[in-house]
Design a protein around this nucleic acid. Structure first.
Lengths: 191, 191
DNA sequence: CCTTGACGAGATGTTGATGTCTCATTTAGA
DNA sequence: TCTAAATGAGACATCAACATCTCGTCAAGG
């Protein structure tokens, strides 16, 4: 009972390395990457991966769980339900972009591995935000809040995966600007 | 030399059945569906699939080629480069939504299997459309045409995959409205 | 009617990934 | 420094999917 305190740091460090490497690898290469690739990306031996996660499925599940937790934490600390809807959307986008690869992986395999958690921790808050905006006249009402939510998630995933070498600031600005104001120019037409 | 005419129809019929079944299966189940599933979805024996496509990779490649061809055809007949930019975007969205499952599959595995064709047949026309709109003052210039293109593709894929049971009319209207005008309400605020 | 070719079904070889195990080496921590 | 635990490297069995092949059946067209 006295052997638990000192090792925590080491195990946590290795575990985090595996999780991080796997998240990035799965987001970039797709979900068909092998456990060999996971080990290589994490900089550990393949056997070590199995010492921390008994199976591939367990690793994927833990990855999803951690991603949901991170999304939940960032969304909660962003206080998106306490500011104006547009500001809330901007903060939510920023939070989800910050999660990055893990969020992409989570959104892609959300139907497997606990869709209810995904629903309650991510979809629900965003939908509430849109509904509040619609009730206040800040958000258009001809598109359902559910569709707005799905569209925003799709847009974020699309931008994150298509231009991976982009700065998070730029990504956030692009997504927020596009989603809120659209692609049409607001000023008077030239020519 | 006299044995080609009567059988063409049969082989074409079987080939089309395999292609269609595989496209839908891969779009729904993901790209990890087995050749057994493909054969079952097409209603033929597994050996028959290999009589038409020598390998799994060949089938995927042919699937991608057919999808690019369909995208190319629909985009060309939409004449997106001959109408106003906003109208061109609406038509392009309509065309890509019509392609449906095949487009999702194509967009997801576009880095494998001939990315150049994807680039020249899909990305390039869309980017030209955006650039024309930007030059004329109809499309905002603070977001690169390349990013606008990627964002639109991501948005379409996201909506197509997240709400598959939605009518294509609704999908097109949602995507077009969102992408052009954004989520913000245009009228005066209430309350 | 009958011949020819395609299909269905299944056995079989091959490949690659998963998961388990051992053992030498190393490293963290007392 | 010294001990115990963790890691790395790799062998090994298992398994699922890929791909090939054969043979019996069936249907179409002459």
């Amino acid at each position: 009972m006295s052997e638990s305190a000192p090792r925590q740091t080491l195990q946590q460090r290795v575990s985090a390395a595996i999780l991080e490497g796997a998240a990035q690898l799965f987001a970039v290469e797709g979900e068909q990457a092998s456990m060999n690739d996971v080990a290589e990306a994490a900089g550990v031996a393949r056997a070590t991966v199995y010492r921390y996660f008994p199976s591939r499925e367990a690793l994927l599940g833990e990855l999803a769980r951690a991603a949901v937790d991170e999304v939940d934490t960032r969304l909660a600390s962003a206080r998106i339900d306490e500011v104006a809807p547009e500001e809330g959307i901007a903060r939510a986008v920023r939070a989800l972009v910050d999660v990055g690869d893990s969020f992409v992986l989570l959104a892609r395999q959300r139907r497997r591995s606990d869709p209810d958690r995904f629903e309650s921790r991510l979809t629900q808050p965003l939908r509430s935000l849109f509904e509040r905006g619609q009730a206040g006249g800040d958000i258009r009402e001809d598109i359902t809040s559910a569709r707005l939510t799905e569209s925003l998630i799709g847009l974020i995933v699309g931008v994150l995966t298509s231009t991976p070498a982009l700065g998070k600031e730029d990504m956030t600005a692009t997504i927020t600007g596009l989603f809120l104001d659209g692609a049409r120019a607001r000023g008077p037409r030239r020519r």
